[in-house]
Design a protein around this nucleic acid. Sequence first.
DNA 1: GGTGAAAAACATAGGGT
DNA 2: ACCCTATGTTTTTCACC
Lengths: 164, 164
Amino acid sequence: MSGMLEDIDARIAAVLAADGRCSYTELADKVGLSVSAVHQRVRRLEQRGVIRGYAARIDGEQIGLPLTAFVSLTPIDPAEPDDYPQRLLPLPQIEACYSVAGVESYIVKVRVASPSALEALLAQIRATANVSTRTTVVLSTPFEDRPITVGGATPESTTRAEHT
Amino acid sequence: MSGMLEDIDARIAAVLAADGRCSYTELADKVGLSVSAVHQRVRRLEQRGVIRGYAARIDGEQIGLPLTAFVSLTPIDPAEPDDYPQRLLPLPQIEACYSVAGVESYIVKVRVASPSALEALLAQIRATANVSTRTTVVLSTPFEDRPITVGGATPESTTRAEHT
DNA sequence: GGTGAAAAACATAGGGT
DNA sequence: ACCCTATGTTTTTCACC
């Protein structure tokens, strides 16, 4: 296989998924390589697009965006070109856009300040994308953005042995 | 108001949401404060829980988890205590869990290696949580995890002026 | 809150195995 | 591919405003 991920790369990815600001020193310690070897691998992972970037996880409730919702989109005119994601991209309240199998075509995840802001956003979505919408309001988020687990590689699998 | 976010903290959060590995030096430059002032503010944001942590964004397709789905959960026994999130927590394939308003009670987002892995996971979810499930398979993800925009504060709003 | 400077830790590049 | 060493940067703490 060509695109498969080596075990050690999987562990690096798992560690960084759990702690994006982990230092190369600590990372090296955790996966059992030297700092430079780890650094090299991380750069390759970034280059290959396995690591797409780094982000701080922000608590939406504390920054004035307490209302999250999932909005399912159904095209009104089936003859239209399918460029919905592009049309939705300019709306910054839309955090994610998924093309899905099912009665509806897309699901987007949105974050807004209030019910009236959601109302306004839905109107914008319908207008800019020419779709009908079905909205599911999130009441609470027990957990979110959990670090990936790839092939049994959890962040705390290995600790480097001393080599003195 | 007590919990409201200052403008400069909002900008810090926005920058770190867009680039979680941004150095304090660069951050200080972008928001127009000294390195130590920014560092102090970031620590306070972390402490207050505004910044919940940092994560590398991993491309699921490249690490052997190409299949994403949203699974809606409906409790079978309405008399049961509502501890579904706790019961789902041990399943690492579940990346997020939302309590929602609507016909169903929860929506969880899952990542798996294959259709058969999805089938197995759904069986596990039904068994451990005593729910019925409705699954929407993600065909593609035009965009995801876009950095937050809080009160007009985008990462590239301000650059520090030289003070020589 | 904010600043600036010093010490410690870290990132990064080069050369060797 | 990996390790080690050397250099420049960044983080972190601290005394002061």
